[in-house]
Amino acid sequence: MTALAALQRALAGEHAALYVFGVVGGRVSASRQPTLRDAVLAAYTTHRGRRDRLTAMVRAAGGEPVAAQLSYRLPTPCRTADQLRAAALTVERRCADVYAAAVASTTDADRRWAIDALGECAVRQLSFGGAPEPYPGLPEL
């Protein structure tokens, strides 16, 4: 995969992440799940920042940033608190996967950024009920 293709895939992943976190953030109860709500809001802010950064990185690499789709299939029905948490966890796992792929396809500053993003996604998984894993972002291992 070229560096540009890897950045575009990461950007597409962040578009999807923002959609799901937007839905999850709208459905999580501030009064009954304050911890989950705080984690979702923090995740949304982080993913939005990464989307903007990736948009700039794609342009710098000479590409036209891939656009967001109108809607995405939610990873869970997103009705109960457990389903909302699981949806958030799935999104963080998928983002970890695309950032790990981006690490392999990039060099220098772009790779450094992808390495950091992978680490952030991995740590954030814990706030959505994920357990530590030997190889975050590397599903084949």
Binding site: A96, V123, Y135, P136
Partner: peptide, 13 residues
């Protein structure tokens, strides 16, 4: 590089 980044992420977790 990807493997090492995954190990780094594991240690961060």
């Amino acid at each position: 590089a990807r493997l090492l980044a995954g190990m780094a992420a594991s240690a961060a977790q």
